[in-house]
Structure formats: structure tokens, C-alpha cells
Nucleic acid binder design. Structure first.
Lengths: 244, 244
DNA sequence: CGACAAATTGAGCCGGATCAAACTGAGTGG
DNA sequence: CCACTCAGTTTGATCCGGCTCAATTTGTCG
């Protein structure tokens, strides 16, 4: 039951799990899947019959644009449920892809639905998770719509670092981040060339180190100030109880 | 109970309402509110204790950017529940504003929560509504991130027309749309000047008529082709039963 | 060593921003 | 009925951030 721990971890930050809720989560059947980088999990138009929890690694959702380009709409880190919306929407309207090597816990729709039916508070918490993802989409619209290349990249770095820290996958402003500059360009709507130059500028200012699948932010205050980063939109639980 | 009809209408497109579900919706207390244009409904940072259904008019959510500009993240039409996420997220991270004159049906969180608790299928349907809104966010990210000004505006026009038609507020590709060019610029991340010139181009090509709070699309095929508009992402129900 | 993806650099160009001014139309008040 | 105001629209001119194209370099892996 590999999904158990990740879900218990995530949900116990949102509310106090009752014993029977906890037991139901532990009883949830799931299947461990390991993926190498750049493997497709869903393709736009698919009708998945299962959902998955990211246990480790990075996942993104993206769409191919008419002109052959690609827009990444969001990243998902450990504990996230990138495709939980398929439980209610059926067909998925975008690709879901493993960015680097990943571990996933796959749960059948039927099992997840049964869990939600039997435990309304768990259903509510999962609903809430999808709402937070929506909030992140809104911030991306702001970021892409109105901010300059430099600020846009800085903001993305701040977001990813914050989210990874929240799930214990970053410490001291250092994290593994298996993104290429191509990925960054697809996520920010910039050209790869311009991403390259903007990253150099961020490095020159001593704000970040990025490369080889690793991001460090030596000057967190400077970067957040540049990026106008306010983490409110991530609705991070105040770690009610960091241990299960 | 002004909210009743709008909600029954919306939900009955998603699944067959059982008699008791229908009764519960009819019993849902709500309060009618009329707003003139440009009235603020929520401000970022608020913690609303009620939600509302748009009965008539246009509502948008937006954020003020650090440099004094504004990004509109989404529009809501009749039948939509722009702030239903506050039921689970508490604090709201963006402004919610009436664009033109509006009629809203306000429902207290407590009443809505009780409805969801008692009728899980209604809760699921409302969850689904929030997922569709998320899907629209994703498409906006694509639109703003990768498309040219002309295409971007065309796509927005297609989306709004489609959504208004789906709720019977547009016919023959004609609808009321109380948007200024300023609003359009804030929604697309373009300057107002450039919106003006792009609209002229769309008009010159015979694709749209827009002005005085009214949009008409004389050449729907042409506009959708230009905009690469594929309505899948709106997850419109296939009007299972257009009458209650 | 070769092969290939990713990162980097340079040069030139263009879409859309900015700034500034004029125009339009719907009130509104004298 | 006209003068005034004010929001929204339109036009013109100029500028620049970021794109494109193309070539080179680096790093990694077989």
C-alpha cells in the first residue's frame, strides 16, 4: 500500500484523521509504479480509470499547441494527485508526463470513489487539494500574463522551492529539480534562448544556482523580492502535525 | 429561493436528480442580490462566509499586480459559482468583481455544507464544477503563454460565446457582453492600445462585431479556426435534459 | 571516440508596450 | 439647450523585451 503514507501525510495536515479514516486510508489498495524521465502517463483525450499519487519525483501537465510548441500548465511534487480530476471529469484534456524519474502510487477510480463515499471528510480534503491546484493556475496566469522574463522565472523557482520544502523534499533552499531550460521555457511561455539568458542574469545577481537537476537559492529574500513572491496562493497547511 | 432554479438547471445537466435531491435544492435558503457594474464582491484576503450563484450578468476574478496593473483570471456567467472554493479554502486570494449589472443568489456556507453532507452526489457535482473552472484556467495559461494578440482575443471571444450559449444567454452568435477594451486587456495580458488595434483587425476581417456591451460573431467558423478553438476543455454537458 | 541532448552565444528583427494626444458619447448640471 | 466632465476608444510615433535563426560549446553516455 505505497499510497497510504503519502496520503495520510498530506491529509493529516488538513484535519485530524479519525481512527476509521486512518484505517480506510491504510486499507486503500494501490500499486507502485516507477518511471524514468520524460515518460508519458496520460495523453490528452485519454479516459483514465485510475488516479495516482506522486511519491517521488516531478510530474507535469502540458498541452501541445497548434504550432508544435508545448505549454506546461503545472508541476506536481510528492504528495500531489495530478490526475484526481479524472475521477469526475472522465476524459483528460492535457498530457501528464513524468519530468524526471518518478515513483507513483496508482489507485483505481473505484477504490478512490468508495473511499470518498464512505468518508466525506476525506472527499472534502481531496476536493480542497484540487482547489489549491486551481489557485496555482491563477497565479500562473498572473505570472505569464504580466511579469517580465526575469521575474517570471524567479517566481517559478520560488514556487517550486516552497512546495518542495513543504513536503520535505528541499532543505536549506536546496532541492533536486530535474528540469531542463526547455522545460522552463515551456512552463513560462518564453523561448529557450531567453530562458538561458535570464537564468544567467539570475546567477550573476547571486540569486540562484541551477543546473544538473539541482536548484539552490542562496539569496531567498532577494529572489522573493524580485519575484514579488507571496506564498499565500499555495494555501500551505501550517503543518498542524508534521508527524503522522 | 432564487438560487434554486439556477442550481437545479446546472446540476440536472450533470446527472438525474433524485426527488429528495431536487427537494433539498428547492429548500436551500438563498438571498437575492443585485449589483451595478464594477462592484466588488470579495477582496483578496477576505474570508467569506457565504457563496453565490450568478443568476444574470458577468463576474470576474482578478488580482492586482505589484506594478499597479490588474490581471483578470476568469469570467463567470449565469449558473457559475465563482467563489464556491471559499467553502473549503476559507480566505480568498483574489478579488471577485461584478463586471456589468448582476444578479446573484447568495447562500450561506453552512447551508451549502449541510446540502453537501446530506447529498453526496450534489457535493460531487459541485466538485466537478470547480474542476471545470480549473480546466478553463489551464486553457488560459495556454492562451496567454503562447498565442498572438489576435488569436488570444479571438479565443476569448469564442470561449465566452460558447459558455453564454450553453446557458441560453446567447443565440445566433449574439450576446450581451459588458466588457470594455480595458477589461479585455486585463484578461489577455495585452495593452489596451494593442487590444484596440487587434479588435479592429478582427472587425476588418468580418469575424466579430463588438461594442456597446454586445458581441456578435458573424463568421463563427472563421473565428474558431483563427483561434484554434476546441471547446473540449469547457466540459460542457451535452444538455442531457434541457428542461428540469 | 562518436553521438546526442542540453546549454550557450551572437546578430537581427518584430510584436506588442509605452507615451501622448485627440476623439467619441453618455451623462450632468447650470 | 449647451458647456463640462469623464470613461472609453482611437490614432500616431517610438522603443524595447523577447523571438528567431544559426552556429558553437559542453556534458553525458555508450
Amino acid at each position: 500500500m505505497p499510497a497510504t503514507h503519502a496520503l495520510v501525510e498530506k491529509l493529516s495536515c488538513l484535519f485530524d484523521l479519525a481512527p476509521e479514516e486512518s484505517a480506510a486510508l491504510h486499507a486503500l489498495p494501490s500499486r507502485l509504479v516507477r518511471l524514468a524521465g520524460d515518460e508519458e502517463i496520460h495523453r490528452a483525450g485519454d479516459c483514465p480509470t485510475s488516479c495516482f499519487v506522486v511519491l517521488d519525483g516531478l510530474v507535469c501537465s502540458s498541452k501541445w499547441i497548434e504550432d508544435g510548441k508545448r505549454q506546461i500548465m503545472s508541476f506536481y511534487v510528492a504528495g500531489d494527485l495530478p490526475d484526481i480530476r479524472t475521477l469526475h471529469l472522465g476524459v483528460i484534456d492535457c498530457d501528464v508526463t513524468a519530468v524526471g524519474p518518478c515513483q507513483l502510487a496508482v489507485i483505481e477510480h473505484g477504490d478512490l470513489q468508495a473511499l470518498c463515499d464512505a468518508h466525506p471528510r476525506i472527499a472534502s480534503a481531496l476536493w480542497r487539494c484540487t482547489l489549491v491546484v486551481g489557485s496555482v493556475y491563477r497565479e500562473w496566469i498572473v505570472n505569464i500574463g504580466h511579469r517580465s522574463a526575469l521575474v517570471r522565472l524567479a517566481h517559478l523557482m520560488c514556487e517550486l522551492m516552497t512546495r518542495l520544502e513543504a513536503v520535505g523534499h528541499a532543505r536549506d533552499r536546496i532541492c533536486n529539480l530535474p528540469l531542463t531550460q526547455i522545460h522552463l521555457s515551456q512552463a513560462t511561455g518564453l523561448s529557450a534562448v531567453h530562458v538561458n539568458r535570464s537564468l544567467q542574469e539570475l546567477r550573476k545577481r547571486g540569486l540562484i544556482t541551477f543546473g544538473g537537476g539541482r536548484l539552490t537559492i542562496p539569496d531567498w529574500d532577494g529572489l522573493t523580492r524580485l519575484a514579488y513572491f507571496r506564498p499565500d496562493y499555495l494555501y500551505l497547511p501550517q503543518a498542524r502535525r508534521r508527524a503522522a
